[in-house]
Amino acid sequence: MPVTDPLSSRRSGGTTSARRRATATKVATVSAVVTASLAVLAGADQHMADTGRLDAGKTIDLSTEVQPQQSAQAVAFTLPEIPQIPGLTPGTLPWEPHKPAIETRPRTVRPVAGALTSNYGSRWGAMHNGIDFGDALGAPIAAVTDGVVIEAGPASGFGMWVRVQQDDGTVGVYGHVNEILAQVGQQVHAGDIIATVGNRGQSTGPHLHYEVHHPEFGPIDPAPWLGGRGVAIESLGGE
């Protein structure tokens, strides 16, 4: 009669054998991987030793053989060239011809275009403290110098006047005006139109009566004062 192992014995023996075989397979696989890795590392070390070995007596020139990687990729940097303006003289800026006119305009101008008709001094038994310019009614009157308007309106004997504190401290008086075109406190420049020629007050015809009052000496002759500032006034007969 054949001997039959119990089912439990067969199962136990079969499981143990299978586990042993699986363990042996894993060990063999790991050993193979480790061996292959060691071989690769050994080969790499040998390659580095071969390539890094120097011939006996050979000298390394660091200036030619060893160069930073960046030096091979260096890019030269130069400043951009400033474009030149054609026809421009060196040292001359293109906007110089367009500087404000205030730098070249005259400091003193003639108040009206009309001719001198009366001098400064004694006239008809009284003192004539200014000079007269005959001109058409409504002709423009210009500020003689830079200054500030200090009075503008009615005035005894002149009908209407404009008084300007001038750039040298004197006061310019514009009398017998027909229309006032400036206001008190206004800053004016030489040549600015401040009024028009009139025939108001004690006047025998359209004209401008112009006076210059010095802060220390009072009224002075406007003709030499204007001449000293570059505006020549011809002397003619009385009014």
Rank of each mutant, 00 (worst) to 15 (best):
V144M: 10
W161P: 01
R163Q: 12
P154N: 02
G138A: 08
G159W: 00
V162M: 10
I141K: 00
G125D: 11
G175S: 00
Q166K: 04
E151R: 13
A155Q: 14
D132H: 06
R123W: 10
A155M: 14
P154Q: 01
W124D: 11
V177C: 10
V173P: 00
V171Y: 07
V164M: 15
G159R: 01
L137N: 06
G130L: 01
A155S: 15
D146K: 06
E179S: 13
M127P: 02
G153R: 11
S156R: 13
M127N: 14
V173Q: 01
F158E: 06
G157C: 06
V149H: 05
V164T: 08
G185P: 06
A126Y: 07
S156G: 12
G125V: 12
D168A: 14
G159K: 01
G130Y: 01
G169T: 07
G147Y: 09
A182F: 06
G172R: 01
A139F: 00
D167G: 05
G169S: 08
V162K: 10
R163I: 09
T145P: 00
A126S: 13
I180Y: 10
W124F: 15
V148D: 06
D167W: 09
G169F: 12
V144S: 06
G159F: 00
Q165W: 13
S156F: 12
A143R: 08
L137F: 07
P140S: 12
A126N: 09
V177R: 02
V144F: 11
H128Y: 03
Y174F: 14
H176S: 02
E151C: 05
G185S: 10
H128S: 03
H128V: 03
N129P: 04
G134P: 05
Y174R: 04
G172P: 02
G169L: 08
D146M: 07
Q183P: 03
G172L: 02
F158P: 03
D167I: 13
P154Y: 00
V184E: 10
D168C: 12
T145H: 02
Q165V: 05
L181W: 11
V177D: 04
A139R: 00
G157D: 08
H128C: 03
V164Q: 10
H176V: 03
D146G: 11
R163S: 14
G130H: 00
W124Q: 08
A155F: 12
V171A: 11
G175A: 01
R163A: 15
A182D: 05
Q183K: 13
E179F: 00
V171C: 07
L137W: 06
V162S: 13
D168P: 06
E179T: 15
D167M: 12
Q165C: 07
V144R: 06
E151N: 13
